[in-house]
Amino acid sequence: NITNLCPFDEVFNATRFASVYAWNRKRISNCVADYSVLYNLAPFFTFKCYGVSPTKLNDLCFTNVYADSFVIRGDEVRQIAPGQTGNIADYNYKLPDDFTGCVIAWNSNKLDSKVSGNYNYLYRLFRKSNLKPFERDISTEIYQAGNKPCNGVAGFNCYFPLRSYSFRPTYGVGHQPYRVVVLSFELLHAPATVCGPKKST
């Protein structure tokens, strides 16, 4: 009989979030998941669920729940959905087409922007091929755009693959930082360890 609440607040209220290319994953298990708490945590810009209804979450049980978190800019949030393409979905964080879970995003301009520009958040701009779903690539190998090998040196047709967002508070919403948490629900042929409040007794 599990009584402890799932530590969603640790994920959502973390002081620092990860850069999207090096997104963070927390496995959540053996706890009571009260998803209604999430609705009250922040004024969400996005709370979209796929393959599951957000209002039914509190009635369900899962084997595992994974919470992935990272920062992107406002106009990239739409890429965090099944079947999307674009720089983020292709080279940084890719959801599977049959994704079961929820994408939660909110504006973090007050936390993640600086007047002089916050350069701490990076994204991958160049990659030889698209990522597979939930693949994480943290390599910093020089990207070869031409025929000549780069031998690890940046220059003509040889690019450092990561680029930094420079978040400034005066930017338009599309270029402001957004914190994203992706909850993916895993149903294996194994005992369910993460249940809503109704199912945990």
Rank of each mutant, 00 (worst) to 15 (best):
I2W: 11
T3R: 08
T3M: 08
T3K: 10
V11Q: 04
F12L: 08
V20F: 03
Y21W: 06
K26Y: 06
I28H: 02
S29C: 08
S29W: 06
Y35N: 06
S36L: 05
S36G: 09
V37L: 12
V37G: 10
Y39C: 11
L41S: 12
F44L: 12
T46N: 10
F47L: 13
F47H: 06
K48R: 13
C49Q: 00
Y50G: 00
S53I: 07
S53V: 07
P54M: 14
K56I: 08
L57R: 04
N58K: 13
L60C: 09
C61M: 08
C61H: 09
T63F: 07
V65S: 05
A67Q: 03
S69N: 03
F70D: 02
F70V: 01
R73K: 11
R78D: 14
A81F: 01
G83S: 08
Q84V: 10
T85W: 03
T85L: 05
T85Y: 07
G86E: 02
N87Y: 15
A89S: 07
D90N: 12
Y93A: 02
K94N: 05
L95R: 00
D97F: 07
F99G: 00
G101A: 00
A105Q: 03
W106A: 01
W106I: 04
S108T: 08
N109S: 13
D112R: 00
D112V: 00
S113W: 06
K114H: 13
S116L: 11
G117V: 06
N118M: 06
N118I: 04
Y119A: 15
N120V: 11
Y121D: 04
Y123S: 09
F126D: 11
L131Y: 02
P133V: 03
P133T: 05
P133Y: 01
P133I: 01
E135D: 07
D137N: 07
I138N: 15
T140A: 10
T140G: 09
I142E: 07
Y143N: 07
Q144T: 09
A145D: 11
N147V: 12
K148D: 12
K148A: 13
P149C: 08
C150Q: 05
N151W: 09
N151Y: 11
V153P: 07
G155E: 09
Y159W: 12
Y159G: 08
Y159C: 11
F160C: 09
R163C: 09
R163Q: 12
Y165P: 05
S166V: 10
F167K: 04
F167T: 05
F167Q: 06
P169W: 03
P169I: 01
T170I: 08
T170D: 15
Y171G: 15
G172T: 14
G172C: 08
G174E: 14
Q176N: 05
P177D: 05
Y178E: 03
S184Q: 10
E186Y: 06
E186F: 00
L187C: 11
L187Y: 10
A190T: 13
A190E: 12
A190R: 11
P191Q: 14
A192S: 13
A192Q: 12
T193F: 09
T193S: 13
V194Q: 11
C195Y: 07
G196I: 10
K198L: 13
S200G: 14
T201R: 14
